[in-house]
């Protein structure tokens, strides 16, 4: 097992380096350039140096005058030492900005993930056990709606219902700017929590469908298996046949999906966070990207790549936990 994990980690490192090089190339060639923009701004000041001169000064200041290969190598050598540089846009070290916002994303993602699993898996199993019944059709239609709707639409509908018509929540932001500062600590916490409800609902609504359908399909497959008939032939009550014999087997593929999405909790929900102005990692990196903030974007994408690689590894390990047939000796 240790050998397997080491091998996978080494392969992951190689993949990571290649992926980051591609990302660097892409950002390098992005039409939006933070440098050009700043140079233009500085040049437009009265009595300033001309634009081209500023451009040269800034390029050398930010270490961008080289070609992309040497630029990437410089970034790499700094990155492995844990030095990701300062963010151009936020003007503080990249890692500091990251620490500031990551937990907002994490708690939002975790709440949505747990709710999703808690709702989707039981409903999926229920739909499968009552195949072709009214319950099954209702669940299937709801999950299809969830899959088909784009995030921005769901978010807007929720805002309209819960923020505009019912007035239960604020449509965006992380706190109520007018009263937040005056509240006691617990009140502040509750205020922030209330602002997380709508984004969380949006994430659940769009994520739940696929997991539900996946669970349903897998449960159906398992329910038709011979060992389920054996379990019934033993005289086990139906509840135990489904909840114990079938569910343990349904879990195998579901765990792969869940394992893959666990690291995703840290990578933020770019669209949802932006729509609700939640200052999480997705929201911040969105603004970094459109402003051409190379250090922050590189850091964020490197971070997500590492998460993806760890995610697949985690899924493989979890697979061995639930399925004795794939345990490596």
């Amino acid at each position: 097992m240790l050998k397997f994990i080491t091998k996978r980690l080494l392969m992951g490192a190689l993949i990571l380096v290649l992926a980051m090089f591609l990302v660097y190339l892409l950002i390098y060639n992005l039409p939006t350039s933070y440098i050009e923009k700043t140079a233009r701004e500085l040049a437009s000041k009265p009595g300033s140096r001309p634009y081209t001169e500023w451009l040269e000064v800034l390029n050398s200041q930010y270490g961008l005058s080289d070609n992309p290969v040497t630029g990437f190598l410089t970034w790499c050598s700094n990155a492995v030492r844990g030095n990701f540089g300062d963010s151009w846009l936020w003007t503080i070290p990249v890692t500091e900005k990251f620490k500031e916002v990551i937990w907002n994303s994490f708690w939002l993602g975790l709440a949505a993930f747990l709710l999703e699993a808690a709702i989707a898996i039981p409903l999926g199993v229920l739909a499968a056990t009552k195949q072709y019944s009214a319950t099954d059709y209702t669940i299937t239609v709801l999950s299809l709606i969830g899959i088909s709707m784009p995030t921005f639409f769901v978010a807007t509908v929720f805002k309209m219902i819960f923020a505009v018509h019912l007035g239960w929540f604020d449509p965006y932001g992380m706190e109520n700017a007018r009263i937040h500062a005056t509240l006691p600590p617990f009140g502040q916490f509750m205020d922030t929590l209330a602002h997380f409800v709508l984004p969380c609902m949006t994430l659940v609504a769009i994520g739940i469908g696929s997991l539900m359908r996946y669970t349903r399909t897998n449960t159906l497959e398992v329910l038709n298996a011979d060992y389920i008939r054996t379990a019934r032939a033993k005289g086990l009550p139906e509840k135990k046949v489904i909840g114990y014999h079938a569910f343990r087997n349904t879990l195998i593929p579901i765990v792969t999906i869940l394992g893959n999405s666990l690291p995703g909790l840290f990578s933020g929900a770019l669209i949802t966070e932006t729509l609700f102005s939640i200052r999480g990692i997705g929201y911040i990196s969105y603004y970094s990207m459109i402003q051409g903030d190379i250090p922050f974007t590189m850091f964020y994408l490197a971070f997500s790549s590492i998460l993806t690689i760890l995610g697949t590894l985690l899924a493989d390990i979890l697979y061995a936990v639930v399925d004795p047939r794939v345990r490596v000796n």
Binding site: Y227, T230, A233, K234, G235, P324
Partner: peptide
């Protein structure tokens, strides 16, 4: 009655046992 009074041996031993127990 199933399992206690009447029990059954199936055709496919490969798939008739639950793989995870």
């Amino acid at each position: 009655i199933r399992g206690k009074h009447i029990s059954m041996i199936f055709q496919e031993p490969m798939t008739s046992l639950n793989p995870v127990f």
